[in-house]
Design a protein around this nucleic acid. Structure first.
Lengths: 340, 340
DNA sequence: CTCCTAGGTCGAAGCGCTTCGACTTCTCTC
DNA sequence: GAGAGAAGTCGAAGCGCTTCGACCTAGGAG
């Protein structure tokens, strides 16, 4: 591989000049710049990332800690990952992918060995053990999620509490008096994953505020799980006329179960889904849904990271307001379908 | 951050000794080793990755080029990514994630700037434009997929042709004479993605060999897509008694469609799915399926990479034999269900 | 006409690590 | 009891880049 010295020799300048052409940190005459750029192109020169990291004290690499277990929310996670990588590339950065099961150790490793300039951490638990270590690290960090005590770390997330509230409010305003919540798998709650509990809190708030009856249960992301969950809700809440589904993978099975038990959506039961838009649109019924804007959140996280990298201080936490899209899965209680 | 010089000073040795303790490339007395290790622990020393890369000529990072579009096969891709990262970690390597829409440029960039030691490339097209550039690169590369001309590059994949054959053979042996194939989305074929065409080829082979009637069509990964695809198959092949589904996302909708149109699985129509095991088990019916062993393939790819990195030559291509698991979605033609 | 400043370029000093060669002890072997 | 070889350690030379200070040349201000 060509080195900066080769380029310098070919262009008849010093290596520092080549470096300044590349970084733009000092003025260079148009003539010199042209010669250097020609040599770079001719030699196919690419700066050695390691040398750069050593001398320049940054790597242009971001770490992304993602929950790579085969949980429910695979499509959402995929969206996050995709948008983080894409956004990072638009800032000329690459992404090093960490699994969450390395936990804090992975973060300490990549930060400690200066492999990355900053960290983005997903799947935050309410009392996440990684937060203290993140704070101890020198690198900027952004959480996709919201812990109880961010403690000076930037957070970016959907406002899941508001999402829970919004879903119920929508149903209440359509006259429903008894709503069930089909939640994420038990494991998600057990881990204390913050979006699950925040959503539930918003759900409960709205239920109380509107004076509704409710039942809520976690659901495994399988047909059987959805069935079991629905059965429990039916048991506890006999007159249930509306369902909020905060579990992508349960959506399709659920719809199947409802239909085969003769309950029409939305005539007999209204359903609000919490999921990415494309999931909401790919089902047999176009689902009224609260969007999980994975792409937007990933991009936002990267933007926060970049501004921290630029030296801007302050650990703002941004919770995106939920937006509910009315489609075909909700109707007024006791009546027929209603236009979205 | 502590440097190797700090550690050396604390332990009262030279930096080279610390380096040899770390790398094990020269004998070190137990006493010295102990002192050095104590200093390392005390100072929380971590070698600087950039410095290491510069001096040591390798980064311990792998590039993984994954199709991060929101295609159908999200769960499979997730499995690949997960297993590659996990396997890489077990060899003390990290993974830099590239999106496929950077194409060859991304590969050239990370390889050219010495960010990675080797590359793993997914979602290979029959005549993939990245293959020539991969060959030109110095770094070892492994494909997850199988192009027409691997040209000296190692490949790892499920034997999709055999998978197609196996699925049909299974059905034929149960007396089915007319089988339909619900394939991946049109876009997958249009890209010339190799697994789709290989699977189809195997399917057709078996159809001919067993003298069956058949119809095959791509399907969008939505409810509507599955419905349209099924309709076309029904039109072309009125007596169809068995379906092969090479499209994870169409599976759940399909089952719903069949049920609501009164066709029982497996009594009226047998279905063989091509998908990861957990998908096959999460549906309303435990699906007879040909497994896509994402975890195994990812791990295999990493192993190949590591052996190339160790200097072992030879570009073997490994196609894993498909294994069909009999479950509850297939029955003998014209009879009732049959034990798996 | 001199002085200052800005533009443009260079040389050299690191950045933190690995590795090569050399050196010093020991421990065998004959 | 001398020589060979292994074990254990050190010093120094890079690896390829960035950046600091210095230098030179013009052009404008006074």
């Amino acid at each position: 591989m060509a080195t900066i010295a080769d380029v310098a020799a070919a262009a008849g300048v010093s290596t520092s000049t080549v470096s300044y052409v590349l970084s733009g940190r000092r003025p260079i005459s148009p003539a010199t710049r042209a010669r250097v750029e020609a040599s770079i192109a001719e030699l196919g020169y690419r700066p050695h990332a390691g040398a750069r990291a050593l001398a320049g004290r940054h790597t242009n690499v971001l770490a992304l800690a993602a929950p790579l277990r085969s949980d429910i929310n695979v499509p959402v996670i995929m969206q996050f990952v995709t948008s983080v990588v894409t956004a990072a590339r638009s800032y000329d950065h690459d992404v090093l992918l960490l699994t969450n099961d390395e936990g804090s150790a992975g973060l300490e490793r990549v930060a400690g060995s200066a492999m990355v300039d900053a960290l983005i951490v997903m799947d935050i638990e309410s009392d996440d053990a990684r937060i203290p270590v993140l704070r101890r690290l020198r690198q900027p960090a952004v959480l996709i999620g919201l812990p109880n005590r961010p403690g000076g770390i930037s957070c970016v997330d959907l406002d899941f509490a508001a999402a829970g509230y919004t879903a119920v409010a929508h149903l209440a305003e359509h006259g429903h008096r008894a709503v069930g919540l089909i939640g994420p798998p038990p494991a998600v709650y057990e881990r204390g994953t913050s979006y699950a509990t925040r959503f539930l809190a918003g759900f409960v708030d709205a239920v109380e505020e509107y004076g509704l009856a409710s039942a809520s249960h976690p659901s495994e992301p399988t047909f059987e799980g959805a069935l079991a969950c629905l059965n429990r809700i039916d048991d506890e809440l006999p007159g249930v006329s509306a369902l909020v589904v905060h579990n992508e993978a349960a959506l399709s099975p659920l719809l199947g179960i409802l239909r085969s038990s003769g309950r029409r959506v939305p005539e007999d039961v209204s359903v609000v889904a919490i999921c990415p838009e494309d999931v909401a649109l790919g089902l047999p019924i176009r689902m009224t849904s609260v969007d999980i804007p994975g792409h937007q959140l990933g991009a936002l996280a990267v933007e926060r990271v970049m501004s921290l990298l630029r030296g801007e201080r302050g650990a703002e936490t941004r919770l995106l307001a939920p937006s509910l899209a009315e489609r075909d899965s909700c109707a007024d209680a006791g009546t027929g379908p209603r236009a979205g």
